[in-house]
Write a protein that binds this DNA or RNA. Structure first.
Length: 638
RNA sequence: GCCGCGGUGGCUCAGCUGGUAGAGCGGCUCCUUGGUAAGGAGCAGGCCGAGGGUUCAAAUCCCUCCCGCGGCUCCA
């Protein structure tokens, strides 16, 4: 091999750079694009991520990685995890690092260590800051497996990784200051890159199935600069102020009591939200040819044995014994709908038969998973079951996808789909499953909305399309769902007579759009920060007489508004006007109508719209028309 | 369910190296009738989550349970 042979390095813009063998990736990239070099935190060599400090020894393709690349972000966050491990092992020397991967939105590192305290975390943060200031290099070494076993002799977790590594090949190790970790890499060049990382907190996590000890997890998130971190922290503190549990209390929407864990108590104002959502959905159902039914909340065990829930869902059900007979509180509406279909002989002419039922459902969710309105034990879904022939499946689902588009647009929520396929525990024929999955997949493609596939996450009776919405912080929540079911109708022996005179089993589409009122409202309250669109607002208008002599005029306006169905309150003159305006603003009332001497004599109102400082005098008629119109059209803003 | 951390008037929180329960907001009463984010004064309101224990004495220390929060797992 000749020293003189220069390497040919192909770059992303199609150009080629000739370098001496042994040139580092970083040097080569800096020669290529000096202006952007400070953003490069690692590189891709023939498609594999490498450190910038790695020497190039052959021809190949080289590309830079920055924080803007997903891989680049993961490298920065994984490096951040190393820094956390360094900080923790300096704080608690016998802590055993296990693994510290990047995640969807940050990173964590798990340790086998005594339970952590906030003081431990303070110390970790301080030591991390120290290392960042010192700009310690992430230095890569390759050692034999024997050598690695010696280095990590006291850490069984690392020994397991070493054992899993391919035999005969060296393993890589990274040193950061005095901290050494087994790691594939790559990493950012030095800890100076990690000034924008933030330790979110710690928690303990349940041991894995192999029954090891419970680990302590430190979570964090990384940004390329302090400035971007500050912007994120600001967003986060705003999001904390939007917590639907706090808004629920502040606005008297709902609350919880110890005696009914996971079951919200709805106050009058919260009930307005539910009824308005219900009305919104009901209007659609009427247009789309649904009929409504009501079926029992409590069914004997045999119904669930027929539906399959007894075998597949019993651990999540509330059970009651009545007269020595075992009953279960329904966790889903399907059994009742099946019974309605089965109540008499059915003809193909009745299909699609769309049965809606908004009944309270009970699911015994694990106590540790309950969380405000987003995870409850008692809930109501905007549920329906559509009984169709094979030929009707596609057109029905098309209508549903369009309705989803409309609904989520009204709420200004961005949504995405997830196609969940056959789980390990399933009922029925795999061939039929494949066909059903193919139908759903092609409909999703046709809808043009982004979707991902979750293998094995389907319901036990069929594949499903789940609808995810994101709250203001970008956290995803599953709400609506469209499930294709070939199993339960057959298990219930449902049949209809076809045009051929033969009996056929219908297919059932289980579907919800908003999901449950509870979770939907939990997410939506955070999405709108408690500033409900006028049509949903528990109080739509608050009328404020300036002084007592205008009280009658104020009541008159309130009556006019109430007469056209507007939810209106009058705030009396016990408090100062400023104080009442402030209260209305804090109660997030969309419209404040002030009536003073001037307004009474002119027949006007001074209108202040939520979130604006100015007020505007308009005629009573104009105000009334405006409010009624915004409400009727379900506009998002007042 | 598992691990960690919490639980004090309606709400938000202080008090917690043991020694007679506090504040602000809200509520009520009185004064004030004020033009677009807090007018003033007074009063009421708490078995300090529940039950046991330690102690002369427990909101405070210990144990059990319940509920909540953050995760794990699971889900609409």
């Amino acid at each position: 091999m000749s020293d003189a042979a220069r390497l040919r390095v192909a770059l992303p813009d199609g150009s080629t750079l000739e370098v001496e063998p042994g040139t580092t990736a970083g040097t080569a990239l800096a020669a290529w694009q000096p202006a952007h070099a400070p953003e490069f935190l690692a590189a891709l060599w023939d498609g594999h991520p490498i450190d910038l400090a790695r020497s190039l020894e052959s021809d190949g393709h080289l590309a830079p990685l920055t924080f803007a690349d997903r891989q680049g972000r993961e490298i920065l966050e994984h490096s951040s995890a190393h820094l956390v491990a360094k900080g923790l092992t300096e704080t608690i020397p016998d802590a055993k690092p296990t693994h510290g991967p990047p995640t969807e939105d940050g990173f964590f590192y798990d340790f086998d260590v005594r339970p952590l305290t906030p003081e431990d975390l303070d110390s970790v943060r301080a030591r991390m800051a120290e290392a960042i200031r010192a700009r310690e290099t992430f230095r890569r070494r390759e050692v034999s497996k024997e050598e690695a076993r010696r280095i990590f002799a006291t850490n069984p977790y690392k020994l397991r990784y070493i054992a899993d590594a391919p035999e005969g090949e060296p393993v890589s190790i990274y040193d950061t200051g005095s901290f050494t970790d087994l790691c594939r890499g790559p990493h950012v060049p030095d800890t100076g890159w990690l000034a924008g990382i933030h330790v979110l907190g710690f928690s303990s996590i349940a041991p894995d199935s192999s029954g090891g000890p419970s680990l302590q997890r430190i979570r964090g998130i990384g940004f390329p600069t302090r400035r971007e971190l500050d912007a994120y922290l600001k967003l986060r503190s705003e999001a904390e102020a939007r917590d639907h549990r706090a808004i629920g209390t502040r606005q008297d929407l709902f609350f919880f009591v110890d005696e009914a864990p996971g079951c919200p108590v709805w106050m009058p104002r919260g009930m307005v939200l539910i009824r308005e959502l219900e009305r919104y959905v009901m209007e659609h159902l009427k247009d789309a040819g649904y009929v409504e039914i009501r079926t029992p909340l409590l069914f004997a065990r045999s119904i669930y044995e027929t539906s399959g829930h007894w075998d597949h869902y019993r651990e999540n059900m509330f059970l009651s014994v009545v007269d020595d007979r075992e009953f279960g509180w329904k966790p889903m509406n399907c059994p009742g709908s099946m019974l309605v279909f089965r109540a008499r002989a059915r003809s193909y002419r009745e299909l699609p038969m769309r049965l809606a039922e908004f009944a309270p459902l009970h699911r015994n969710e694990l106590s540790g998973t309950l969380s405000g309105l987003t995870r409850v034990r008692e809930m109501v879904q905007d549920d329906a079951h559509i009984f169709v022939t094979e030929e009707q499946v596609e057109s029905e689902i098309r209508v549903l996808l369009e309705w989803i588009r409309q609904a989520f647009t009204t709420f200004r929520l961005a949504w995405s789909y997830e196609l969940s396929t056959r789980p390990e525990k399933f009922l029925g024929d795999p061939v039929q499953w494949d066909r059903a999955e193919a139908i759903l997949g092609s409909l999703l493609k046709e809808s043009g909305v982004e979707y991902k596939v979750s293998p094995g996450e389907g319901a036990f009776y069929g594949p499903k399309i789940d609808i995810h919405i994101r709250d203001s912080l970008g956290r995803p929540w599953q709400t609506g769902t469209i499930q294709l079911d070939y199993q339960i109708p057959a298990r219930f022996g449902l049949q209809y007579q076809g045009p051929d005179g033969q009996l056929h089993t219908p297919i059932v589409i289980h579907r919800t759009i908003l999901g449950t009122w509870e979770r939907f409202l939990g997410v939506f309250i955070e999405h709108c920060a408690g500033r409900f669109p006028p049509w949903l607002a528990p109080v739509q208008v608050r009328v404020l007489p300036v002084t007592e002599p205008q009280a009658e005029g104020a009541r008159g306006l309130a009556e006019e508004l109430a007469a056209v169905g507007i939810r209106v309150e009058v705030a009396g003159t016990e408090d100062s006007l400023s104080k009442r305006v402030r209260a209305a603003e804090l109660d997030r009332v969309p419209y404040v109508a002030v009536i003073g001497e001037r307004e009474v004599s002119e027949g006007t109102v001074s209108v202040r719209i939520r979130g604006t400082k100015e007020s505007r005098s308009v005629s009573r008629a104009e105000f009334l028309t405006h409010v009624v119109d915004r409400v009727r059209r379900r506009e998002f803003d007042p």
